[in-house]
Design a binder for these strands. Structure first.
Lengths: 115, 115
DNA sequence: TCATCATATGAATAGTTGTTCATATGTTCA
DNA sequence: TGAACATATGAACAACTATTCATATGATGA
């Protein structure tokens, strides 16, 4: 921690009063953590087109069924995808328009910095 | 992988042709990875108000100077914050409007699901 | 130049996370 | 009921990451 010379007690108090409450910030970090894995990102991207079964996702991305299933569970828990069961199959789709929007925003940042 | 019975070669081909290229998706995941840590999220949130020195951020969030410095480096590398040096101090600020927008989107999702 | 201070960084460690293998669950159809 | 299949899940392992401590760097003022 820094020495006493610099008194930022005022700015500390001020900034803290304007901060989003900490529990929300933790939830937010947890949400982005879900986006922060390439396998999950790829799964979400595949689901942009249409709902897909688990084994179809595995085929598209060249992943093991088990891997896809584990990641879909995480996406489900974060309410980013939803399931529809039909016989033996489970069809997954995006649960929320925010997914697309968050995706788009990230994409703007990435592609802008590629210039 | 699933058996041959279900032929999704058509949908596989179709979806793959529409997918964002894989390198971009990896970059995207890396970007969200940076957002996916509560310390970094809190730092960014503090920087919404105004630019801040390293030790001021540490004070505000109750973190060690070293921790803040390490995380700021990661944020800098992802072009999410920028530095302005003034004497012994380094003042950090948000580098990009996308930061706010990505933040807002995440927040909508989180608060919506809290209802 | 030397002491002090703000920041940056390297190394070590502890905790977390993604993938894999093996297996369980639950559905369909003969 | 039992075989075949799609999916889900538990356990184990490997890889990654955040924090801490110690120290380096670089600036200021005496």
């Amino acid at each position: 921690m820094c020495a006493e010379h610099i008194d930022h007690s005022e700015i500390v108090k001020n900034t803290n009063s304007k901060m989003i409450d900490i529990d929300t910030l933790f939830e937010l970090a947890d949400l982005f953590k879900v986006f922060g894995d390439s396998t999950r990102i790829r799964i979400m991207c595949a689901l942009f087109e249409s709902e897909l079964s688990v084994c179809c996702i595995a085929d598209i991305l060249g992943l093991e069924q088990s891997t896809v299933s584990h990641q879909l569970r995480i996406l489900r828990q974060s309410k980013l995808v939803k399931v529809r069961k039909e016989g033996k199959q489970s069809f997954y789709s995006l649960d929320d328009d925010h997914v697309r929007q968050i995706f788009e925003m990230g994409l703007s940042h990435v592609t802008e910095n590629d210039k």
